[in-house]
């Protein structure tokens, strides 16, 4: 079937089987490889992306469900100022090790800070609860997100 949606601000139309998951459509049909597959159970968070701005594990979404919606992956926020602050904070705080969870983690962190620019540490932990990182033990990721809060330019 044919699906039309907006990917990172660009309208796209793809032909897929109706039972294909969103992560598979993006990776296999559209070469969007930043969306990682880690569990296909909605548990690890590696495939996190934004649908109409909300963080979602794309392995639990069927491709036809994004018809007419706005899908944002990490590529779409490359030049976004909040994402730049987050990215730099991640890099400088040692929050990136193997990097496999990083795109999904950054997208969850982005959604958190966009909606709550001054989160407490507990709120940061809750904001990334759905993203598993097996390398860092989360400490540097949490520190990086709190550091990004400091970096955000006042409006």
């Amino acid at each position: 079937m044919e699906i039309s949606f907006e990917l990172n601000g660009e309208p796209v139309t793809v032909t897929v089987e109706p039972y294909m998951s969103l992560v598979d459509m993006l990776r296999a049909e559209m070469d969007v490889k930043s969306v990682k597959k880690g569990c296909e159970q909605g548990e690890c968070g590696a495939c996190t992306l934004l649908i109409d701005g909300a963080p979602v594990t794309s392995c639990l979404v069927l491709a036809p469900q994004v018809e007419g919606r706005h899908v944002t992956t990490i590529e779409g926020l490359e030049k976004n100022s909040l994402m730049i602050d987050l990215r730099e904070a991640f890099i400088e705080n040692g929050a990136v090790q193997c990097g496999f969870c990083t795109p999904g983690m950054l997208l969850s962190a982005y959604a958190l800070l966009r909606d709550n620019p001054h989160p407490s540490m507990e709120e940061v932990k809750m904001g990334i609860e759905g993203n598993i990182c097996r390398c860092t033990g989360f400490t540097k990721i949490i520190e990086a997100i709190l550091d990004a809060v400091e970096r955000i330019a006042p409006e």
Partner: peptide, 25 residues
């Protein structure tokens, strides 16, 4: 000294390639 890892940027941009990412359609 703490020096920023040279591989961190690609990973944070989602451009780092892992094995499955090399597999063509």
């Amino acid at each position: 000294k703490n020096v920023v890892r040279t591989d961190a940027l690609d990973k944070a941009l989602g451009k780092a390639m892992y094995t499955a990412d090399y597999v063509p359609r």
